[in-house]
C-alpha cells in the first residue's frame, strides 16, 4: 500500500481533481490548480536541497580523492557555496537576496548574465556548422530542409534584397523585355520567407501539434490509469 498502491491512487486522485477543477469555477475547485502548482513549487524547493547535495558531493569526492581535474571541482564548490553564502547574507542584510544593491545581484549582473549571454551567442557558430553538415547529406529530406532554410534566411537579412536586386539585373540582361523596376520590387526572398512561414510551416506545425496533443492525452491517461508506472520503478 505504502510502496505502490498508495502512490498510484495519489496520482489518480490528483489528476482527476485537476481535470474536474478545470470545469468547475466554484469553490473549492476554482483555485485548486493554482494551489497545487504552489505546492509543487514548495516540493520542488525542498528537492533542490537534494540537487545541491548531489552536485556538492560529486565534486567534493573528486577533491578529496584528488581525482583528475579536482582543481576545477574546487572552483565549482567554492562558487556554489560562495553564491549560497552571498544569497543568505543579502537575504538577511537587505531583506531580500534580490535587492538591487545586494551583493547577490552583483553576482547575477556580472557573472550569470554574461555567462548566459555568451553561451547563448555561441549558437551563432553552431547553427552554421549544423547547416554545413546538413548541406553535405545528400538525400531529399536534407535538401528540402536546406533549401527552405536558405530561402527564409535570405528573406530575413538585408543582404537578401541586394542579392535579389543582382538577380533581377541578370534576368533583365538576358530578357531585355522585362521591366527591371518591377522585377526588383518583387523581392523574391522576402516573399518566399513570408509564404514558407505562413503556409507550409504552419501546416506541418498543425499536423505535428494535433499528433502531439493526442500523444500527450494518451500518455496522461496511461499515467492516470496506472498503466505507465516506470516512475515508480516497477
Amino acid at each position: 500500500m505504502l510502496y505502490r498502491t498508495g502512490p498510484l491512487i495519489l496520482v489518480f486522485g490528483t489528476a482527476l481533481l485537476l481535470i474536474i477543477a478545470f470545469f468547475i469555477p466554484h469553490k473549492p475547485f476554482g483555485d485548486l490548480e493554482a494551489r497545487f502548482l504552489n505546492w509543487y513549487a514548495i516540493i520542488s524547493g525542498f528537492t533542490f536541497l537534494l540537487g545541491l547535495d548531489s552536485l556538492a558531493r560529486h565534486h567534493l569526492i573528486k577533491i578529496v580523492r584528488r581525482e583528475k581535474g579536482w582543481f576545477y571541482s574546487l572552483l565549482l564548490v567554492t562558487s556554489l557555496f560562495g553564491t549560497l553564502f552571498w544569497g543568505l547574507y543579502s537575504w538577511i542584510r537587505y531583506a531580500s537576496p534580490f535587492a538591487l544593491n545586494a551583493p547577490f545581484m552583483w553576482l547575477y549582473k556580472f557573472m550569470i548574465i554574461p555567462l548566459q549571454a555568451t553561451m547563448f551567442a555561441t549558437l551563432a557558430f553552431f547553427i552554421f556548422s549544423a547547416a554545413y553538415r546538413a548541406f553535405r547529406v545528400r538525400n531529399l529530406a536534407a535538401t528540402l530542409l536546406l533549401i527552405a532554410a536558405c530561402m527564409v534566411m535570405l528573406g530575413n537579412v538585408p543582404i537578401g534584397s541586394s542579392i535579389w536586386a543582382g538577380i533581377s539585373w541578370l534576368i533583365h540582361q538576358i530578357f531585355p523585355n522585362t521591366n527591371l523596376e518591377i522585377l526588383k520590387r518583387w523581392e523574391l526572398f522576402a516573399a518566399a520567407k513570408d509564404w514558407l512561414m505562413a503556409i507550409p510551416q504552419a501546416a506541418a506545425g498543425r499536423g505535428i501539434g494535433i499528433g502531439l496533443a493526442l500523444g500527450g492525452i494518451a500518455m496522461s491517461l496511461r499515467i492516470i490509469l496506472g498503466i505507465e508506472r516506470t516512475y515508480l520503478s516497477s
Binding site: 530542409l145 533549401i147 527552405a148 532554410a149 514558407l196 510551416q201
Partner: peptide
C-alpha cells in the same frame, strides 16, 4: 515536415 523544419531553422 522537412520544409517546415528548414523554414524554422533559417528563421
Amino acid at each position: 515536415i522537412m520544409v517546415a523544419f528548414g523554414a524554422s531553422f533559417g528563421y
